[in-house]
Design a protein around this nucleic acid. Structure first.
Length: 569
DNA sequence: GTAGGGTTAG
């Protein structure tokens, strides 16, 4: 078989299994000159199969005995194009360490990876290496470098790199323009836009998104109308802009008006609906495009997971794990799935995900570890959660919050408080979720004064306590026997309390046999949440405890009348 | 075959 024939077969018909067989043949017959060709063809196919082949590509590379600059650069490029930036960088530095000199393809892919994961050190190191490699004059490399600095927000250096490019092309200009836009420097961006010798559709798109970032939709629309040609990205930028301004209906009108939509348009709309809790609209859009893109899956799974519809999230995730699925889950899909497990308290499913990750060689990063911390903590396995927490590269707000909540629900209030203090000391500013966690930890051990301090601290940080925070505080006061104070706190609330807050008060009354306040609490509960029968029996118990049997029996009778059968449950 | 828009965790 000739090389070109083999190439054609691979390119057109390659499946993972077939490629594996061919690769075995090559290894067995010691045909190493074929390896580079094989890898190139696999990478071509990989573009169609995305995550499905990534594991396989890596395994091929593991088998490859002669690692030349060509196969390394192909793989680095492949990884960076498929969003596997850490892996791309790992391979880059590995190749570099084993004496393979990177070519311009490897360099630009590595720089792109650094930019995307905001790895400043990595980019700086590559910049340093460039001097020795005599690649400083290659416009691709220079533009990648420029893009790296502008994505990291260092526009001074970016500008310097740009000035040194001898033959600037439109992409170089666009990267500089995009940098100013991302940096929020609209004046400079406009200057560059005026100065550019040639503008293409990307330049116009950048300017449009410059205005949408500044929430100046009028200017954005004006520019949008004046564009000589429009791409998907032009429309998507407008859709995105209206979403950020909270005008979802206008965004939808633009979305519907698009002459042709691409997958990005769908993902943008789906995640907007997701954040607004409109799962049905998201699902409708998803159904129009299902199984079309890995990121589409991710967006829909995240949508379910973010809106307390964990079962549906996992159903969709299951589709991806099937042997013949078109897309295999990546880290983001995994994060959402783990979060769904956590909501269901299903640690068994979580363990399956963990072994699935091992099987595919997906490394645990901080993001994933944080999802697992939450899962294990909610399932009561604090040892495992602590272990993961200790192994984190960096402890950020979300990780601390997950641990604090975990300690809180597992009765380790002291640890929660310690973590909270540690977090504050390291300069991390807590948010609403953190306060919920720490407040419930105080509640768990009955630290009333600390609870009040926490309320004050929240307000000092500019947060208005939510209904949840008030519920926990009322709960805390009730447990401490301070029912009247709890009632006073409710009366001081700036907004109308929900049933949950009154419910917490009612529970407090039960603990303290406070009939007077209980009647008020129960009345409010029933008004706000008339379908629930729990309040009746709670109040009945309070009457009974106070010796008011008549009232208790009257209420119990009412339960029978109202919802027949419910008392049997 | 190289660079420029989209999605994760509490």
């Amino acid at each position: 078989m000739t090389l070109s024939k083999l190439g054609n077969i691979l390119e057109k018909f390659l499946t993972v299994e077939q490629a594996k067989q061919i690769h075995c043949q090559i290894v067995v017959n010691d045909l190493h000159n074929l390896e580079a060709l094989l890898i190139r063809q696999i990478l071509k196919c990989a573009a169609h199969y995305s995550a499905r082949t990534s594991h396989y590509v890596r395994s091929i590379l593991g088998h490859t005995r002669k690692r030349d600059a060509f196969s390394a650069s192909c793989t680095i490029r492949y990884l960076s194009q498929n969003g596997q930036f850490e892996e791309a960088l790992a391979l880059y530095s590995e190749s570099h360490a084993s004496g393979i000199y990177p070519n311009s393809f490897a360099i630009s892919s590595a720089l792109k990876s650094c930019a995307r994961i905001l790895c400043k050190m990595g980019g700086l190191m590559i910049h340093g290496q460039l001097q020795k490699l005599a690649l400083c004059e290659v416009v691709f490399v220079q533009t990648s470098l420029l893009d790296f600095y502008s994505k990291l927000g260092d526009m001074v250096v970016a500008r310097k790199v740009f000035d040194e490019i001898r033959e600037k092309n439109v992409v170089s200009w666009n990267s500089l323009l995009g940098g100013y836009v991302k940096h929020g420097d609209l004046a400079m961006a406009q200057g560059v836009f005026e100065e550019m010798p040639v503008r293409d559709v990307v330049s116009w798109n950048s300017m449009v998104s410059g205005y949408t970032r500044g929430k100046d939709m009028e200017q954005a629309y004006d520019l949008f109308c004046r564009m000589p040609e429009r791409s998907f990205a032009s429309w998507n930028a407008m859709v995105c802009g209206y979403i950020e301004c909270g005008k979802i209906e206008v965004a939808r009108r633009f979305f519907d008006a698009m002459p042709e939509k691409n997958i990005v348009s769908y993902i943008t709309m789906i995640s907007a609906y997701s954040k607004l809790g409109n799962v049905e609209s998201a699902k409708e859009l998803y159904d129009e495009q299902r199984e079309n893109d890995l990121l589409l899956y991710n967006a829909m799974i995240a949508c379910y997971a973010q809106n307390n519809r964990a079962k549906e999230a996992l159903q969709l995730f299951d589709e991806m794990v099937k042997p013949n699925a078109r897309f295999q889950p990546d880290k983001r899909a995994l994060s959402s799935a783990i979060s769904a497990c956590s909501q269901l308290g299903d640690s068994e499913y979580g363990s399956r995900i963990e072994s699935y990750m091992k099987e595919l060689g997906i490394r645990m990063d901080d993001h994933l570890a944080t999802s697992f911390i939450d899962l294990y903590a909610k399932c009561g396995n604090m040892d495992k959660a602590q272990e993961l927490f200790n192994a984190l590269q960096r402890r950020d707000l979300v990780a601390y919050t997950a641990m604090i909540i975990g300690c809180g629900i597992n009765g380790k209030a002291r640890e929660a408080i310690k973590l909270f203090d540690e977090m504050i000391d390291s300069g991390i500013v807590p948010n609403m979720v953190t306060f919920t966690g720490i407040l419930s930890a105080y509640c768990h051990v009955g630290l009333v004064e600390e609870g009040y301090d926490c309320f004050a601290l929240m307000q000092r940080h500019g947060f208005v306590p939510t209904q949840d925070h008030y519920s926990i505080m009322v709960d805390l006061l009730g447990k401490a026997g301070r029912v009247d104070e709890a009632y006073g706190l409710i009366k001081s609330m700036p907004s109308e309390p929900h049933a949950g807050v009154w419910g917490a008060l009612l529970l407090g009354c039960r603990l303290n046999n406070n009939v007077q306040v209980a009647e008020i609490a129960a009345r409010n509960c029933l008004e706000l949440d008339p379908d629930s029968s729990g309040y009746h029996s709670l109040l009945a118990n309070i009457y009974a405890a106070a010796g008011r049997w008549e009232d208790a029996n009257r209420l119990r009778g009412a339960i029978h009348l109202k919802i027949p059968g419910s008392s049997w449950v």
